[in-house]
Design a protein around this nucleic acid. Structure first.
Lengths: 206, 206
DNA sequence: CGAAATAATGAATAAATATTCATAAATAGT
DNA sequence: ACTATTTATGAATATTTATTCATTATTTCG
């Protein structure tokens, strides 16, 4: 194994493999988003990725696996960003605001992901194990923020935390859902501040 | 046509037809809820309804049509009740509370419906026309309530109504979703008051 | 280069199941 | 009771498409 060939083979192999894997995954994302998981076909995905149908099966166990890996990968990436965003906040309100901003920003940047999360996540009922964990992480993140807010005194003591976090996540998802229905015509992220304001102050006048 | 036979034929015919139609529709609801629309089979539905596979096609155009009719029917019934509930309220806050209570109560009473709405409604992308209209009615109901609240002075003037209604609906759906995931183990309707309280006052302390 | 290993192909296969339809049962009208 | 009409049956069909795999292409590396 000389200097020139040192690991190059493996590296470029890895790279090609990764590239093709990503290509297929992204194509799948586009096709799933356009037609929905069940109406999407392997042939469509393969064609869009520029590979043969059979090739898909060199990178994924089966059709379900493609969806699973797509969601799994996207979730991980987004969640990492959310975590970082929350950490940037100096108090509970700031953390909440950062979380919501990040959430909306990421979904705005990746509409395919937004559509797929909205429509297909629930299909993975059985497969869900890992994905459920990540959804749980999101809710835990919220729990921490709320609890911190209560300690700081910026949030009410009489909150039912389990309800509040569902309330927050549900509303964000609703807002994203509307944005998707509107074919992403406006700035999703511009909803962040008004939304956080609603969380904090409610609809009632003073 | 004598006294004894007067219209009896037709009446019982109607009744039988309606009965079988409902039987199939309800069986479909149960099967869809248990297995999900795509994994549910016509044979399962037929078996549960106690009819032959072919019979299903005497009452429904195809599998999609069963889902469509199920959702369509349920939506209409629920929406009528919601409307009535809202009308019982004497002011915006009461109306909002009645709406949310009714919403949660109806979904609690019909878990199959809750599951199907949660998982499958978005599948009907194309078919959605009528269903979208009904969802729109829900949002209009909310718009009216919020606007009334603003006139009464019980709700802030600076609300972005389009956002608020999504916020409200999203949060209710989130709460229902959690309840379904918990296999309906607690009283969904007990969430109504805390939820409305969050809408009105937010999470911030005074 | 050339043999071995790896990767890609896409036509053929296999399985699932929605839908049809010839036949049978039930019902209604006389 | 008898015929016509309506309703129900369920085995057979038809279609769709995920998945396989024998073959071909590409890459690796002495």
């Amino acid at each position: 194994m000389n200097y020139y060939s040192f690991d190059w083979g493996d590296i470029s192999l890895q790279k090609n493999k990764t590239e093709k894997y990503s290509k297929i995954l992204n194509s799948a994302g586009a096709v799933f988003a356009e037609f929905g998981f069940h109406k999407a076909t392997i042939s469509q995905i393969a064609a869009k990725a520029g590979v043969a149908d059979g090739t898909v099966y060199l990178y994924f166990k089966n059709k379900d696996d493609i969806l699973y890996q797509f969601i799994s990968f996207k979730t991980q990436v987004v969640f990492q960003k959310m975590n970082a965003a929350v950490e940037m906040g100096h108090n509970a309100e700031e953390k909440l605001r950062n979380l919501i901003r990040c959430h909306l920003q990421e979904f705005q940047n990746d509409k395919n992901m937004a559509i797929i999360f909205q429509s297909e996540v629930r299909y993975l009922r059985e497969i869900e194990s890992q994905i459920k964990d990540i959804s749980k992480m999101y809710l835990d993140l919220l729990s921490d923020i709320i609890e911190q807010g209560q300690i700081e005194g910026s949030m009410r003591q009489d909150l039912f935390v389990g309800l509040v976090k569902r309330f927050v996540l549900g509303a964000v998802e609703g807002v994203i859902s509307t944005w998707v229905s509107a074919h992403g015509r406006y700035e999703l992220v511009s909803m962040a501040d008004p939304l956080v304001d609603l969380y904090l102050a409610g609809v009632r006048g003073k």
